[in-house]
Nucleic acid binder design. Sequence first.
DNA 1: AAGTAATTGTTGCACAAGCAAATATACCGC
DNA 2: GCGGTATATTTGCTTGTGCAACAATTACTT
Lengths: 149, 149
Amino acid sequence: MGIKDDAVEVRAQGWRTLAALHGLIEAELERSLQGQAQLSVVEYTVLDALSRQDGWHMRMQQLARASALSASATTRLVNRLEDRGLLTRILCADDRRGIYTELTGSGSKLLAEARPVHDATLERTLAEAQQVPELAPLVDALPRLRAGV
Amino acid sequence: MGIKDDAVEVRAQGWRTLAALHGLIEAELERSLQGQAQLSVVEYTVLDALSRQDGWHMRMQQLARASALSASATTRLVNRLEDRGLLTRILCADDRRGIYTELTGSGSKLLAEARPVHDATLERTLAEAQQVPELAPLVDALPRLRAGV
DNA sequence: AAGTAATTGTTGCACAAGCAAATATACCGC
DNA sequence: GCGGTATATTTGCTTGTGCAACAATTACTT
């Protein structure tokens, strides 16, 4: 019942709020991206990460970290996107274990279509979340994180 | 280039940070809970939600919302926990469509064992995240959300 | 220079998730 | 009360995910 226990409960509460907001946003993004661009959230995340990368190529492991996915899931995710012609695998010459992935033309084209959908959904969902008392404080805190970038 | 585009980018950045922190915490919780209490994160979430409920019983749909899971996933999750003897289904008399779930003795016992693991992992992981420049501001913001509870 | 350890990516397997359909019950207007 | 609609939960099916084992390449150690 002391200060220490309070801190524990505050952390648990913060985590629940974080998880709730995350789940809400992810579900909405999933619906809109799937519906309007045939992309899942992770697929969008990978394409977006690739497009924001200098030279537009990343190694499998960077992709895995960027998408918070396991190595095996990343392999198969890249397979799917490659089968759809949205990106290509490129062996790197310097480290022959590594494999680069690079957006194709249709990959960046699809991403260009999907990005407005993504951004609009994000805006709408955050506005919705702001109406939920439990979530509002976190929503308000988000834009203040990196004001200086 | 304008204020509007900046807001879009700020939101996207905030979402990426949120997702990254969420993924990190969930992965760590998954490891420690699975390792020390044979519970997945969602399973813990459900047991915890039940224990924090007045009367210790909830309907399937409340459980689905609390765990950010679909109805069908909730059914099977409750099946698993019921098979392990951690909770029981109870038909409600007033609305015979509804089904209450209630913690059993071993359910709350296991939860009591798992909770310290959960809390310690949360504390440790947040401390770790605070060392990551990208995540630190969000970690700092979390405890300030509901100071008045 | 050889051998061992560490890293990178892929595959086999089991499991949990979502969607849509099915079932059962409640509610509403008449 | 009766038909139609809405809600609550479960089941069939398909798909994506993680873990462990594996293959290929690089780095380290002596």
